[in-house]
Amino acid sequence: MDTLAASLLDGLLIGLLYGVAAMGLTLIFGVMDVINLAHGAIMALGMFGVYLLFSEMGMNPYVALIAVLILGLLFGVIMYFVAVDRVIDESPLASLLSTFSVNMIIIGIGTAIWTTSTYNVEYSLGTVETGPFTVTGARLMAAFLAVVITALLYLFLNKTRPGKYIRAVSDNRGAADLMGIPSHRILALAFGIGTAIAAVAGGMIATIFPITILGGSTYELKSFVIVVLGGLGNPLGALIGGLILGAIEGIVPVFMKTTWVPVIEFGLFVGILLFRPTGLMGTKK
């Protein structure tokens, strides 16, 4: 019983992190119907951002996350105008391919610089013990930050003017245009925020796990599952989807081989796409 509880707790904490990882993907999809296939590569950039700032410049990794956030935002806005803006009204294939080509560029250059070897951010926040549970500080911190980031995104989208513009553009771009909202700049902003969150999620992963330049792709695939669980285009749903995925990863290995986890995850993923395409709790969009 204790193993199950401990394993579940572990899963849920990581699940929150998964949720943030997926949040950027789902935000971008919700606003502009673009599935960003550079998502994993951007997460990898976030990982190496934190690694470099910490190992080369001695910055505290959690401070480095703020730098990664800003750089991620910039990168996303630039990427939007270079690779996405031209194909935003084309068939889905065009944006799938244009974002995938950005993925190839990032991974290509990244591999040339860092090869595909493993790197570690050697920084510890110690461990916390309560009863049967032992949790590393880094995991607790990541879970806490995940909740903070979700709350901030929620407030931004609902309480600020740019956030409201994003929601307006996402509801109906044509109508938003007529009301004088500069829709392409708003799309760029939304894309930037999506990539910024992805990069930060990557950075948070670097504080817990060893990283490689290809490491983002695992989380990208997980993000697809989460995004579908939580409802495509629903940032809050992503956190819940992340928790569900984390719970599966926590519970399943107690009863069967770990290698069954992805079978269950992707089976669930296809099943939900077919029978509940709006997500487990989704109604809109």
Partner: peptide
């Protein structure tokens, strides 16, 4: 039955599920 990006995602899911399944 799925269209656009949803179909694309489903095909990725099917491939990954098959990969994980054969491994088991």
């Amino acid at each position: 039955r799925l269209r656009g990006g949803y179909f694309a995602l489903a095909t990725i899911g099917v491939n990954e599920a098959m990969r994980a399944l054969t491994g088991n």
